[in-house]
């Protein structure tokens, strides 16, 4: 949900956008499309709703919905799409971790996905959980073959494209998974080293400005789950929603570059994305790593790990005290 950002950083981002937006607006649609077609990174990361509808029956293509609202997939999904439940399928349900190699491989085999399969992920809530799925898949080596549906469920529905309630039957594969690569995931120690200025990396906190400043510990309607308010020292705030257009599609590459550059992030230093539990930040992870090609890791421990840790430095601009003043 885009909210006004009162910081100078946000203001700078707006100015930068204002400078680039008129240029984008003057471009004819066709010219813009062809300009984007020349971006191999973007083309590898995203597919359009139009492309997907034309390629529903393509061989070696698997469509997977990762939505958060129960019943969303069942009451109508993109024809041929399969369902993955993010909070049971892609994670360990007892310990807090992404799905281990065995569990992950069993899921991927059942979905009929192999290393040469093109996977299109989509979901509700602006593809938050689909992006999170892409991050988990990437750790197991499924990177370039995995794409997000630009605009997600929202755009597909808004364009009144067909939906189906039947579950497809696919042939299982023999996919094998090794241990997940550690290169895409930031751990507590990494973040703490940055907070203590022992390492020269950038932390991008994509929560709302009120969470970032410490005015609130969690968004409305969500249990606090953290004992302290505020953010990790040295992190900058660019809410995830700034990376999307009103129709849910991801903004043009030039707009994205300007957006993050205004916050001092230009890909010259390693980046760590962080939020509350690590799913919204996967969205920004996807944008930064797959579309802009920046070196970026997602910190899934996020504020529910850091904000509960003992003896770590915290910036709490609002001065909120947990449990009352």
């Amino acid at each position: 949900m885009p909210r006004p950002i009162p910081h100078t950083l946000g203001l700078a981002a707006l100015i930068a956008l204002a400078l680039t937006a008129p240029v984008a607006a003057q471009e004819p649609v066709a010219a813009r499309a062809s300009a984007e077609a020349k971006e191999p990174a973007r083309e590898s990361a995203l597919v359009s709703t139009e492309w997907l509808e034309k390629n529903l029956d393509a061989p070696k293509l698997r469509i997977v919905e990762v939505s958060v609202e129960p019943g969303q997939y069942e009451r109508g999904h993109i024809p041929g799409a399969q369902n993955v439940v993010w909070h049971t399928d892609l994670v360990e349900t007892v310990s807090r971790d992404i799905a281990g190699p065995e569990k992950f491989a069993a899921l991927v085999r059942k979905l009929g996905i192999d290393r040469d399969t093109t996977v299109v992920l989509y979901g509700d809530n602006n593809n938050w959980f689909a992006a999170w799925g892409a991050w988990v898949l990437a750790q197991y080596g499924l990177v370039d073959s995995v794409k997000l549906l630009d605009g997600g469920r929202k755009k597909w529905e808004a364009e009144k494209r067909p939906l189906d309630t039947r579950t497809p039957e696919v042939k299982a594969t023999a996919f094998q998974a090794a241990q997940p690569s550690a290169g895409l995931r930031a751990r507590f120690a990494d973040v703490l080293a940055v907070a203590r200025k022992e390492r020269d990396e950038q932390i991008l906190d994509i929560r709302s400005p009120d969470e970032f400043s410490g005015k609130v510990i969690a968004p409305a309607g969500v249990q606090e789950l953290a004992i302290r308010a505020g953010h990790i020292p040295g992190s900058v705030n660019v809410p995830w929603a700034k990376a999307v257009n009103p129709d849910g599609t991801i903004r043009s590459t030039a707009e994205l570059k300007a957006l993050y550059a205004a916050a001092g992030i230009d890909g010259s230093k390693p980046i760590i994305t962080s939020c509350r539990i690590g799913e919204r930040s996967s969205h920004s992870w996807f944008v930064l790593s797959r579309i802009l090609g920046y070196p970026v890791r997602n910190y899934d421990g996020s504020w529910t790990e850091y904000g509960n840790a003992v003896g770590v430095p915290v910036v709490n601009l609002a001065g909120t005290v947990w449990g009352g003043k």
Partner: peptide
């Protein structure tokens, strides 16, 4: 149609 295999640990939505 929604849950071809009811035998797992999952419940219908």
């Amino acid at each position: 149609a929604w849950m071809p295999d009811p035998s797992g640990t999952r419940l219908p939505p």
